[in-house]
Design a protein around this nucleic acid. Structure first.
Lengths: 193, 193
DNA sequence: TATACAAACTAATAATATTAGTTTATTATT
DNA sequence: AATAATAAACTAATATTATTAGTTTGTATA
């Protein structure tokens, strides 16, 4: 094995990630990818089943990296501090890896087992942090979804300039997380306040 | 004027909307669009400047329809009721016009005056509803962005199956809006509670 | 009735993804 | 050391895409 131009799947995914982060998701074509790797585009079919397959694999890789970043941000932390750090980490990921994040959203997660699995791991991570609030198992899923909606919504809108003038974005983000935490406190920790 | 096959821009946008809502945004090609209209694809260039232009116009149209739906949902309502109805209306729009909504998100709003304008009108609408909470002009933009993040995040994740099993989605949504309102109350109406 | 022109058309080009079939270089085996 | 297997590169070809150029046509107005 190991023939003349030793391109492997990890190389391909790394090159693809560079392309989407630098030039956007639409810039990822079999041509551009092959060119970046120094091979001809049909050679890519020795490693994958085509462009949709590469996009799917890239989405999985992106979600894994997001999961790892979120995990690192909550190690040794709990409650509000854990949530604040996790939120910062989420936004930071989207800002530093815009294309990689975007492609995790574009892929249809409900059709793919691997994507399902990593998505669930992220949900589980959030759920675990929420345990400290004694939310109760019935509401846990709702709060987890709320936090994820908040983070994805903000990050996604910011990425597309959906907020209009990009003024005070960090301030808005902190304010948003605080408002969420206040709702959480009022709902589940009213007596402890 | 009015030549043999009287296709107009509104016809084109309507056909395009049908395609994206039925078969997804990727299914909108010059071929599929022309076929749906009973003309050949080059004829579309008599009415538009190409596919990106059509997508952009469709995004503008989608945002206008969303704005109108949100406006209708808040007429004669205020405070929590207005926000709850607006939220329901937003989600309902995304659920009934999935492709049209998605294309409003895919377009780069920061590069287009027309898109900027409608986006701003939606922000203004939300801001107006928030006036009743005496949020204060400094925080108004933060709360408006928070609500928009929440709604877009939830709708977008639901649309892509990002929540995993689609169980209790309506319940999650109501719960989410309630949590937001509680945060709002605690932050700005603590004394009135 | 004739002209002007908007909007359709056909034909052609360049870029895309993909498939089929071929060559080559390295690894493992004799 | 020579050779056989094979993974992964290659070239060539096809179908589909968007788009441009140039042509025809049908209707509305002068």
């Amino acid at each position: 094995m190991v023939p003349r131009n030793r391109v492997t799947l990890p190389h391909i995914l790394q090159a693809a990630a560079t392309i989407v982060d630098t030039d956007g998701v639409d810039a990822l074509t079999m041509s551009s990818l092959a060119q970046k790797l120094g091979i001809r585009s049909p050679s890519l079919y020795n490693h994958s089943e085509g462009l949709p397959d590469i996009r799917r694999r890239l989405a999985v890789s992106g979600l894994e990296q997001l999961r790892d970043a979120l995990m690192r941000s909550t190690v040794g932390r709990s409650r509000d501090e854990a949530i604040r750090e996790m939120a910062k980490s989420y936004l930071n990921f989207v800002r530093t890896r815009p294309g990689l994040y975007e492609i995790t959203i574009l892929a249809p997660t409900d059709l793919d087992d691997e994507l399902q699995k990593v998505s669930q791991e992220i949900v589980d991570l959030v759920t675990q942090v929420l345990k400290a609030y004694q939310v109760g198992s019935a509401d846990e899923i709702h709060i987890a979804r709320t936090l994820r909606s908040l983070l994805h919504g903000f990050a996604s809108l910011e990425q597309r300039g959906g907020f209009g003038i990009p003024i005070d974005l960090d301030e808005s983000f902190t304010h948003m997380v605080d408002t969420f935490l206040m709702g959480l406190h009022k709902r589940y920790l009213a007596k402890n306040q």
